[in-house]
Design a protein around this nucleic acid. Structure first.
Length: 733
DNA sequence: AGTCCCCCCATTTTT
DNA sequence: TGGGGGGACT
């Protein structure tokens, strides 16, 4: 491949980023400006022109999806597989380091990785053991505390709790948790990063080795890095290393989970020679959408500054719709989707965004009612399903019997007569002896601590696990999984479950076996450094680190529904942002903190910049929230968008609660003629009382949408419906 | 051991 | 309004 192939398709700024001399750089890449392309082409440039070996390149991302995409595009461009290059997530690469240097990292060779669910279970148990009241000290809070401390690079030994009761309590949980993790030989997600950072800190010779090797480091979504991730990168790059950080401060929406937008500025201090290059030419959206987004985000303070532009045309104005309530809003969206489909658009080109998951239900109902296929992002993932986690727990125990969370999960699944009382006894013995539950159980069945019945049950479990452990060394992975599922009795267990559910679970278990069959450890670890890791351990790590796709009928053409957070990185020709209300976006939890409000604004910006051609911003004047009718104002962000870029699609009913009998504002002559108005209460002979939500057509064709209290929404022809207006008072309650 | 009921809670999520 | 979790009851 020649140089022209690398450079031809690039604009000036992209080309500058790709061809810059070796050194560090900060690429401020706005939404839709081709940042992945720059990363990929830069790697091509390094290899083809600078003569850099793929061996000395590392590319880091946050998600497995991004890593896979990057690897795929690199291989496509170079037209060859790139073994030796490290392309992966922060967690994946850290994991790889720890597997290679488990001894130096002070970990057991077959350490297991905890997912957040396992972690929470452990924390719960520990807090019970510490005698902490769960209602006063929610385990989730402790989990968050621990993870955020680890994300800041802090061990419990670094923390000086002081006299604050909260700090003191959390500190004690953290300390107990660290001790427990060490005892069990388990490592959580945050630990992977912190531990591998410490590995380099404590072993300068290893650091020197990796510095020597990884001369070229590329990072994607740099604005999402937390303190440890940044320290890790900085340490690896050293003073001489070459770090290319690609990010966008305006798309930093993960501050709440430890991402430090400040790292971007820090980078320009720490790497003084780093050149900053801005990618501002957008290839995605219309000029109208970009102008609106630019104006909105300009309200944020302390930006590094960036303005998106396009060579494309203005396109259509952004449409704003004020729904009477959330049902009206969702019907409006469904109707516009139907229009778009009638106009020939594919459903998969359409997306609906919302701030919080709870908003999806009403939208779903409208899609169902209109028979519009949809897909919701972020459902349960394959490796997180209960039956899969149970099967994996058996496999994990086959590898490491000290894995308490796995033992707790399946010691009585399927039921084999080990009740909660017995489990609690095992827990107590384990805790007082400072050993794992497995060891405690083994001791206990030898002594007389348990009833005969319990002893038998526990013994059969122990024998089961020991048998699996033996098989694990001679059976191939898929046969081992199949064997484990059968011997453990999981198939019979789920056969008993009535209905479709048990059947689906068994199918999933079968899918697990075939996943084992297809699993190639080399695909996880691209070079052969990991030979000490058994296929089983490699698979178990793979299952935790890459928990798989949320189930998806990805092949069915469907509307894409997702939260604003999960929309980042995607693009759609037609986008609806629903719930544009003060209280939802910005979320009310952010009201009293300007930093959080800025992040909400960035969230809004991220959503808007997903739209390629058409963007609808919709809100509801009234919506049910937590079982109560809530009135919101339209989002303040709507007012930050220049009004000439927007058009209101239909006038909304403004309900004036103070003037109960005043007519509601209409804006439609036809309606006024008939004497009806939006939001008005009416009575129908057959359907009873209801509220007018919408109307269309005129004269003899005029129809109104009425939400009847008992019958739900119906479109009725005005001339036949014989509607009797009621007092407006009814609405205000 | 499994089911039912009541109470509490309610932003965003990847690894 | 609805889901999840914990406790109590069968």
């Amino acid at each position: 491949m020649d140089v022209n192939t690398i450079l031809d398709s690039l604009n000036d700024a992209q080309r500058e980023a790709v061809t810059q001399p070796l050194g560090s750089s900060l690429i401020l890449a706005g939404a839709g400006t081709g940042k992945t392309r720059v990363l990929v082409h830069r790697i091509g440039w390094l290899i083809q022109v600078e003569g850099v070996s793929p061996w000395s390149i590392m590319a880091v991302t946050f998600t497995n999806k991004a890593a896979a995409e990057m690897r795929g595009r690199i291989e496509q461009m170079l037209d060859m597989p790139v073994r030796g290059m490290w392309v992966g997530t922060f967690h994946g690469l850290a994991h790889r380091l720890l597997r290679t240097h488990w001894k130096e990292a002070d970990l057991p060779e077959n350490f297991q990785i905890l997912d957040s669910d396992d972690q929470l279970r452990i924390i719960k148990r520990l807090m019970q053991a510490l005698g902490l009241d769960e209602t006063r000290w929610p385990p989730r809070q402790a989990q968050q505390y621990i993870n955020s401390k680890k994300g800041e690079g802090l061990r419990s030994s670094h923390i000086e709790p002081g006299y604050d009761l909260f700090e003191k309590t959390m500190y004690s949980v953290y300390a107990a948790y660290e001790e427990n993790s060490r005892l069990l030989g388990v490592v959580d997600f945050a630990e992977l990063l912190l531990r591998s950072h410490e590995l380099w800190l404590k072993h300068p010779e290893l650091l020197a080795h990796y510095r020597e090797r990884f001369q070229q480091i590329m990072v994607d979504e740099f604005q999402d890095t937390n303190a440890v991730q940044y320290a890790w990168l900085r340490m690896l790059a050293g003073d001489k290393g070459n770090l290319m950080a690609v990010g966008d401060d305006d798309q930093s929406i993960y501050g709440w989970r430890g991402a430090r937008i400040e790292n971007i500025r820090q980078l320009t201090c720490d790497f003084a020679s780093a050149k900053t290059i801005r990618l501002e030419q957008n290839y995605r959206s219309t000029s109208t959408i970009l102008k609106a987004s630019n104006t909105l985000i300009a309200n944020n303070p302390d930006r590094l500054g960036k303005e998106l532009w396009t060579e494309g045309n203005d396109g259509e104005r952004i449409r704003v719709y004020a729904g009477f309530n959330e049902v009206d809003e969702s019907r409006f969206i469904a109707a516009r989707i139907q229009d778009a489909v009638n106009g020939g658009m594919a459903l998969s080109d359409i997306a609906i965004f919302y701030r919080s998951n709870a908003q999806s239900r009403v939208l779903e109902e409208s899609m169902l009612r209109s028979s519009i296929p949809y897909r919701i992002y972020g459902g349960q993932r394959f490796f997180e399903r209960a039956e899969i986690k149970n099967a994996l727990a058996y496999l994990r125990l086959a590898s490491n019997q000290d894995d308490n969370p796995s033992l707790e999960r399946v010691i009585n699944v399927p039921a084999r007569g080990v009740g909660e009382k017995t489990v609690q006894q095992i827990r107590d013995v384990a805790r007082s002896g400072g050993v794992s539950m497995w060891r405690a159980a083994r001791e206990m069945v030898k002594g007389k601590g348990l009833t005969a019945r319990a002893t038998n049950a526990v013994v059969s479990f122990i024998e089961l696990i020991e048998g699996l452990s033996l098989s694990s060394s001679d059976l191939p992975l898929d046969e081992l999984a199949d064997h484990a599922i059968n011997v453990a009795g999981l198939i019979e267990h789920y056969q008993k479950e009535k209905g479709e559910k048990g059947h689906a679970r068994i199918e999933n278990l079968e899918e697990l076996v075939s996943a084992c069959k297809q699993f190639d450890p080399d695909a996880v670890f691209y070079d052969k450094m990991q030979q000490n890791l058994s296929p089983l351990d490699a698979f178990l790590a793979h299952a935790v680190l890459e928990s798989g796709d949320a189930q998806a009928d990805q092949f069915i053409d469907s509307v894409q529904m997702m939260t604003l957070h999960s929309a980042k990185g995607l693009e759609f020709p037609l986008v609806f942002m629903s719930g544009m209300e003060d209280g939802l976006l910005p979320h009310r939890m952010s009201f009293n903190d300007s930093g959080k409000l800025d992040e909400e604004r960035r969230l809004c910006y991220v959503g808007m910049t997903r739209a390629m051609k058409n963007l609808y911003l919709t809100y509801a004047e009234s919506r049910y929230l937590h079982g109560k009718e809530t009135r919101h104002h339209s989002s303040r962000f709507l007012r930050e968008i220049p009004s000439d870029l927007m058009e209101e699609v239909r006038l909304s009913a403004t309900i004036n609660t103070e003037m109960s009998n005043a007519s509601l504002s209409l804006g439609h002559a036809e309606m006024a003629e008939i004497g009806l108005s939006l939001g008005q209460r009416v009575t129908h002979e057959v359907f009873g009382d209801g509220t007018i939500l919408n109307f269309e057509g005129q004269g003899a064709q005029a129809r109104v949408l009425i939400n009847f209290d008992d019958e739900g929404g119906k479109w009725l022809m005005v001339i036949y419906a014989k509607l009797t207006p009621l007092s407006v008072n009814g609405i205000c309650c």
